[in-house]
């Protein structure tokens, strides 16, 4: 059989999804094969069918041969539309291209890569995790189209993606063909940061020596820059300024030695609250380009200030059990 034809659209397709065959992904790519595509009439399709029944009854009643012709042509058109709608999804390849981690409660964007390999353009293909946030695109023949599909996150941690639904009603909007895709991709959700009022705690453990030079270091001379109000007087190149060519500040660089320790023990409340607070501190520390380390009950991250460190710290918190 080409595809399963359900006689009715039930009030909620999602209820039935547990019974449907699902397109599983191998090596991240799921190929929609004929058996995984389901098709039902849309409500316009039902309206159309009702109209056809009306035409058929009229043709019988008035013995209209050409009435039969219109009825049968339109019925056959609906049938052909079914094949076309089904074909519009057939053999599409769906892969998750990328999904950046987000904080819990934010909307993640799952970038889907839907590839057409059968030398046939596909029109009006929609994909969604949640019907309210569907993304509709055309896919050119032998091309790849990226679908940025929003997904609302609730809890921190590493979550499997919910089942993705791909559907199309092209060309006549009379039929609704869809397929459900499972992808083993796991979305990393960072903890939800606490409100920023806990920021005061930051300095409590901070080992502050300088203020404006914190990340610049002072090990090696590294050139000049124009003087700015607030630069340390000891760093001004007085020799240069004595010649009246303006004020310059000498630049030094070196590994930051001013380390901020973000410690589990400094937080209060239950586990989730503590994680939230730490998350907030990490965000703030990263935003101000400080060097920071993370101390948790059973792990410790060495201080650093790179982007990778930031993500590593957040990941550690996200996966903390």
């Amino acid at each position: 059989m080409l595809s399963k034809i359900w006689p009715f659209t039930f009030w909620k397709i999602s209820y039935w999804q547990q019974w449907f065959r699902v397109a599983k992904s191998a090596n991240n790519v799921a190929i929609l094969n004929p058996r995984q595509i389901y098709i039902v009439p849309t409500r316009w399709g039902l309206l159309y069918a009702t109209m056809l029944i009306g035409l058929l009854i009229g043709s019988i009643n008035y013995s209209l041969s050409l009435g039969y012709y219109v009825t049968f042509l339109l019925a056959s058109l609906g049938n052909i539309a079914m094949l076309h709608t089904w074909r519009n999804l057939l053999h599409l390849q769906i892969a998750v291209s990328n999904a950046s981690p987000v904080f819990a409660g934010d909307t993640a964007t799952i970038v889907l890569k839907i590839s057409e390999t059968k030398n046939r353009p596909r029109y009006v293909v929609a994909a969604y995790f949640n019907r309210q946030a569907e993304v509709i695109n055309d896919i050119k023949a032998n091309d790849v189209q990226l679908f940025d599909i929003p997904l609302t996150t609730i809890k921190r941690g590493l979550h499997s993606l919910p089942r993705l639904t791909i559907y199309t009603e092209f060309p006549l909007s009379l039929l609704h063909a869809w397929a459900v895709v499972d992808n083993p991709f796991q979305l990393l959700v960072y903890p939800k940061p606490a409100e920023s009022i806990y920021q005061n705690n930051l300095s409590a453990d901070a080992d502050v020596q300088g203020s404006s030079q914190l990340t610049k270091g002072d090990d090696d001379f590294n050139g000049h820059k124009n003087y700015q109000v607030g630069d340390s007087p000891s760093r001004v190149d007085w020799k240069a300024s004595s010649r009246g060519i303006g004020m310059y500040t000498k630049l030094y660089s070196g590994a930051g030695i001013h380390t901020l320790w973000l410690d589990w023990l400094d937080t209060t409340g239950d586990i989730e609250t503590r994680i939230s607070q730490l998350t907030r501190w990490i965000i703030d520390a990263h935003a101000t380009q400080q060097t920071y380390g993370l101390r948790l009950p059973d792990t410790e991250l060495a201080p650093n200030n790179t982007e990778a460190h930031y993500h590593q710290a957040l990941t550690t918190l996200a996966l903390l059990s």
Partner: peptide, 21 residues
């Protein structure tokens, strides 16, 4: 690991004789 960008690209150095960088 201690190589600085200036070490490859070059530096503006103040020249006392010409009073310019």
């Amino acid at each position: 690991s201690d190589l600085l960008p200036a070490d490859i690209i070059g530096v503006s150095v103040f020249d006392r004789n010409t009073s310019s960088f």
